[in-house]
Amino acid sequence: MLSLTYVSSATEEMSVLELDDLLRAARLTNERCDITGMLLYAGGTFIQTLEGPADAVDARFTMIDADERHHTVFVVRREEVARRQFRAWWMGYRRIPERDALRLPGLTDYLDTGRIDGEEPRRSAVETFHRAFREHLGG
């Protein structure tokens, strides 16, 4: 089982309707490919985790990477995992207003510097975002 998390910047701020369309298409494709995961969107920044069979995740990420609706795609973590963190979600999603995103633990630190100040060394940025998604955002 592969888990891949990336961060990217939207080419243009996306409307709620555009995000809904993107999410609807992603869920259909992900279900067909046995991929689960989550997507955060805040202030023009995407943070997404895909998890599933390695060949399916890699193929899906290749398509996502080529999508012109975003740029500066950076893979934060790509690793084999024993189990899915988002096993019930073809694509969990939260659109976070920018003012709320600023309150997420470590989000702005990570986007500005690539690291999270004050985090325990054993905790990764990806785990922090996943925890924030579940706990602070009701996911």
Rank of each mutant, 00 (worst) to 15 (best):
L22K: 06
R115A: 08
L17R: 14
Y6L: 05
R94V: 14
E31L: 12
R83I: 11
L2S: 04
F133V: 04
Y6F: 09
V126Y: 04
S15L: 05
A59V: 06
R94M: 08
R123K: 14
A101G: 14
V126T: 13
M38R: 06
D20H: 15
T49K: 04
T45K: 14
F74G: 11
G92P: 10
P105I: 04
Y93D: 06
A88D: 10
I96L: 03
R83W: 01
R123N: 01
V7A: 13
A25Q: 10
L111F: 09
S124W: 12
T128P: 01
M14P: 03
L17Q: 15
R131G: 04
E120Y: 09
Y110S: 05
Y93Q: 01
S9I: 13
R123I: 05
A88E: 12
R60V: 03
L19I: 12
S9D: 07
M14I: 10
R24I: 00
R115S: 06
A59D: 09
R131M: 02
P97N: 01
A125Q: 02
L19F: 13
R77P: 03
M14N: 03
P121M: 11
R24V: 02
T29P: 04
L107K: 00
D20W: 15
L111P: 00
G43T: 09
R115Y: 15
F74K: 15
V73F: 00
A59S: 12
E119G: 00
L23G: 05
L107E: 04
L137C: 09
D20R: 15
A10E: 07
E98N: 00
V126C: 09
R69Q: 14
F46V: 13
I64G: 12
G138A: 02
E18W: 11
N30M: 07
V75R: 07
H71P: 15
F46C: 13
L22C: 10
E68Q: 14
S15Y: 11
W89T: 00
G37I: 01
A88N: 13
T45W: 00
F46G: 14
L50N: 02
R103D: 14
I35Y: 06
Y41K: 03
R95W: 01
R32S: 05
G138D: 08
V75Y: 08
L107V: 07
E80N: 13
A10G: 08
T128E: 06
A26R: 00
T5V: 11
D112C: 11
L23M: 09
Q48P: 14
L23P: 00
I35K: 02
L22N: 06
T11R: 14
S3W: 00
L28H: 12
F133I: 00
D112E: 10
L23E: 02
V81I: 13
R122H: 15
D20Q: 14
T108K: 02
M38L: 11
R131H: 14
P105S: 09
A26W: 07
L28T: 09
Y6M: 10
I47Y: 04
A25V: 03
L2P: 05
V73L: 05
D117K: 06
A25S: 11
W89Y: 05
M14C: 08
I47E: 05
E68L: 12
S8E: 04
S8N: 11
D58C: 08
E80I: 12
R94K: 12
R95S: 10
V81W: 00
R32Y: 06
L17Y: 15
V57G: 02
D65E: 14
E51T: 07
A82M: 11
M1L: 13
I35C: 07
R84C: 03
E135A: 12
I47S: 07
D58A: 05
